[in-house]
Amino acid sequence: MINVYEAVSANKTKSYFIVALFFVFVTLVVYVLGQSFGYYLGYAPGGIGYVGLALIVSGLMSLGGYYFSDKIVLSISKARPANRKKDFTFYTVVENLCIGTGLPKPKLYVIDDSAPNAFATGRDPEHAAICATTGLLEKLTRSELEGVLAHELSHVKNYDTRLMAIVAVLVGMVALMGDWFLRTMWWGGKDRDRDEDSKLGAIFIVLGIVFAILSPIIAQLIQLAVSRRREFLADAGSVEITRQPESLISALDKISADHEPLEVANKATAHLYIVNPFKGGISGRGPSTALKMVNQFAGLFNTHPPVSERIKALKTMV
């Protein structure tokens, strides 16, 4: 049995590892694309200029996304601000959890949708926002709501919302660069002599194309892994705040039993929610190993770990 504090610190270590991996990966992509671009345009290794340019432009575009992420997400999700009178439980539960954690109270929003779900966003605790659907507020008891909102609040407390914003920026950058690289390939390169170093050049060009195609996918997979890891961390954090694993367990049970899809969620915002808003997919109960392997592979593309695994982790803390 591990206690809450250990769970939080173990999760943090793993998350750092994943983020480090991401940075190594991005650097590698930049290097390979730079090399390959250089060879392609005819002047050997120093092609950093073009990729650098790509890096700056995509970086600027993503930076805007980082600073306005909360507003963008909230407007995509059609959220309205919550108030104490209308959303008494929601409002006061968050208020109380903030007293317990010493965090500033985040801005609260409500989405009019009967599918129960919630998410947190914002680049730091001072600019955080928590959003819940009316379905969540109606279907859960106050204690269950406390578990769910403490989960969201610990996303804010652990700077998960910032991490996810940064990771989203990195994924966006890799995707933009890969895209850019592939497009320029169509234009055709500079005329150059095909002599001794063209062999190495060809290898780099092929590698560059492979990277340009695969890297956005790999980046996405890393993003999803970060997001899944963070869910366990936030679950542990929620228990640390409320000391009531049971209420979060029953909340997760209730939310996952509800098969209504959330209409305002899309692929870009899915990783933010407490439970994956796109329900369904392959059910994980089949005993055959083939199905299990399919599930494991499909699991790579999930924004969230399976609810059953999260509940299992929570039960060790009871």
């Binding site: 006061t92 109380n96 007293i99 317990g100 954690t101 010493g102 106050r142 705040i241």
Partner: peptide, 21 residues
């Protein structure tokens, strides 16, 4: 009932913060 539970919770969490810190 809502208000009573809320105010009781608020004090519980205020104490929780003192304990944790």
């Amino acid at each position: 009932m809502d208000e009573l539970r809320d105010t009781a919770d608020k004090i519980m969490y205020a104490r929780r913060l003192v304990i944790d810190l």
